[in-house]
């Protein structure tokens, strides 16, 4: 019962934070500096890890699928498998998971630390709403940066698949053939589906991490607990949302 209360309280406070932050949306132009800073933190610092992991995800996909497809003599279609998997599913999901681990944890730690050391209280006494100054620029930045990260994840993943397809003996598909199949079967709507998912996951991750950070209570030990909670809740949210959003998008 106590845990159910905590979950419901978490839902309520997250919605409330979202409404409060969106109410300050008109102040975004004069917070342009903060927005750019958050774009840098969310986008630029996450980019290398997204690129490295996407490369190997694309590679492993090609390797695993290549072996199985070779049994049926269908390895020439490997480009379509890697292309669709990266665009519709793995690109956005991996970008969101890395965002949760790299950026979500940092957001939760920073805001939890500000809460524990009374910086949030100081903001409130100065009549500066934390939702305006700390949450809104982050939400705006993630909306801008998530599609960029996802497109890069898709491209690097496709490229990783192409390299494995060419240099793995049992597959041996030339890049021209790989990309020709990929282009034939991966449509723009598949990429758009992935971008929509990425926007949603990124937005939810940042919102959840901000809320958990701002609701930290207690001493310095709670900062670590908040970071762990933020990452775990974000991962659960990404995977649960992914299932339902995929169902909706497939039905559409």
């Amino acid at each position: 019962m106590k845990q159910l209360n905590a979950i419901l309280e978490g839902f309520g406070s997250t919605w409330l934070l979202l409404v409060r932050a969106l109410a300050y949306a008109p102040t975004l132009p004069r917070q342009f500096g903060r927005f750019v800073e958050q774009c840098y933190l969310i986008g630029y610092t996450t980019l290398p890890i997204v690129a490295i992991l996407s490369f190997f995800i694309g590679s492993v996909l090609a390797l695993q699928a290549g072996r199985s497809m070779q049994d049926f003599g269908t390895q020439q279609f490997i480009g379509s498998l890697v292309g669709l998997s990266m665009a519709r599913e793995l690109g956005p999901v991996m970008a969101a998971i890395l965002l949760a681990g790299r950026v979500g944890s940092a957001i939760a730690a920073e805001l939890a630390s500000m809460k524990v050391y009374q910086e949030i209280d100081a903001l409130e006494t100065m009549n500066i709403p934390p939702a305006r100054m700390l949450v809104l620029p982050r939400l705006a930045a993630v909306l801008v940066m998530m599609p960029v990260l996802t497109i890069i994840a898709d491209l690097v993943g496709w490229f990783g698949g192409a390299i494995v397809a060419k240099y793995t003996k049992i597959i041996s598909i030339e890049p021209e053939s790989y990309f020709s199949v990929l282009r034939r079967y991966t449509h723009f709507s598949d990429v758009l589906n992935g971008l929509f998912k990425a926007e949603l996951f990124g937005f939810v991750v940042v919102l959840l991490c901000c809320n958990i950070g701002l609701n930290t209570r207690g001493g310095p030990r709670e900062i670590g607990a908040s970071v762990t909670r933020a990452v775990v809740v974000s991962l659960i949210a990404i995977l649960v949302l992914d299932y339902f959003v995929t169902q909706v998008l497939m039905a559409g």
């Binding site: 009374q118 209280d121 100081a122 100065m126």
Partner: peptide, 14 residues
């Protein structure tokens, strides 16, 4: 306009 000086100072470290 109410100002509170916190025990810890509560300065913004960043």
């Amino acid at each position: 306009r109410i100002a509170l000086v916190f025990q810890s100072g509560a300065l913004f470290n960043s």
